[in-house]
Amino acid sequence: MHMLSPLQTFTIEGLYSLFRGDREVNWKDEDSIQDQFLSSVDGQAMSKQTRRDFLFLATGVASAVGVSGLVWPFIDQLRPDDDERAVESTITVDISSIEKGMTFTVKWRGKPVMIRNQTTEEIEESRATPLKALKDHYARNANLPADTPATSLARSAGKGRENWIILINICTHLGCIPHVCAGSYNGWFCSCHGSSYDTVGRIRSGPASRNMAIPPYQFISEKVISIR
């Protein structure tokens, strides 16, 4: 029968051969383990591995895995239900009654989506803003590529529909609901920490760092949009 050093029991082969019983480990006998423990003050004797160390380690690892497996359900139960995900994922809105200068808020996936029909002055104002004056240079429009610059056209519903601004009315700072037609840039103003957005929802001043998000939407006809 082959002899195995205690250290080899930590290898897969070592454990396997032990399991088959075709090898034996050169354990110290129990008395000498006791001696070792007593003489461990000088720090030398305890450095050798014993079967007890291995068992302690194995028990420790198994318990750690077991406990962390048990912790997960306690965390995961805090997360949103499945049915919450399914609620109102696509909505259609009739926008024919929204006159120039009016805003209309709809609830989409638990968030307020604001649909605004801009006045001509407001369109002119956002067009006149140079891109250099912006804090966030990206359009943040889910309907356009991610690197689209934040021009007034890219923030609106596109060519010919530049008067329509459809955005998620949530401040990009910490998630309050900004007030429309307010603030230093006549767009949106968040009263929580004082972020000001312009008429197309681009961040201009205050602690927020991104333009307000534009949800994925499309015009089904001239009067109806769907947001999804």
């Binding site: 805090l78 239900d81 638990g110 968030k111």
Partner: peptide
């Protein structure tokens, strides 16, 4: 955010 609120926005949970 979702774990804290128990939903995609503030609500009953």
């Amino acid at each position: 955010y979702e774990t804290l609120l128990g939903g995609y926005s503030i609500g009953q949970p």
